[in-house]
């Protein structure tokens, strides 16, 4: 008799755990403003990291301390990071207008960084003698790219400050 009761208690506990686990996996229909700001700040710090990585890649590539394929791999990795950051922002459900503004600023900043990383890949390909060699859209020099990166990083910092980040 006691064994049966324990069995029911155990089954109930398992069912409750499964239910709680499943419920926690559902798409959030509502977020607290603080949670939304933290999510925006998280995505922006990823974008900032990608921008800084790109800055080091440009600097080392221009000094001949990195080969074209290695730089290309590093830049591709950063595009994946930026893709994740953009997905995190686009799938966010802002609970109020403040969070919505933070998200919009965040998306714009992530887009700015993405544009520079894409340009850097073109520059890398052009340096390696690819077909992009004469294209007008290819940045002319490492200095131009570093200046673009500076602007994009500034946008990330401003968006981060708006979201209450460090």
């Amino acid at each position: 008799m006691r064994v049966t009761r324990w069995r029911w208690v155990a089954r109930g506990a398992v069912a409750a755990t499964v239910l709680a686990g499943t419920a926690s996996c559902t798409v959030a229909s509502h977020q607290e403003p603080g949670q939304a700001s933290a999510a925006v700040a998280d995505a922006l710090s990823q974008a900032g990291s990608a921008a800084e990585t790109t800055r080091i890649v440009v600097a080392q590539l221009s000094r001949g301390r990195l080969t074209g394929p290695m730089a290309d791999t590093a830049l591709l990795d950063q595009l994946r990071v930026l893709d994740d950051a953009e997905t995190a922002l686009t799938t966010l459900v802002p609970p109020d207008t403040t969070s919505s503004d933070q998200r919009a600023a965040g998306l714009a900043a992530v887009g700015d960084v993405t544009d520079v990383v894409v340009s850097t890949r073109e520059w890398d390909a052009a340096r390696a003698g690819g077909d992009l060699g004469g294209a007008a859209a290819v940045p002319p020099s490492a200095d131009a790219l570093l200046a673009d990166l500076e602007k994009a990083t500034g946008a990330v910092d401003r968006a981060l400050a708006l979201a209450g980040g460090p």
Binding site: S45, S49, I56, Q60, D77, V81
Partner: peptide
């Protein structure tokens, strides 16, 4: 402020 997420960053 770089968050390591790939091998390419580790060797930079």
């Amino acid at each position: 402020g770089i968050e390591v997420s790939s091998l390419s960053q580790i060797v930079l």
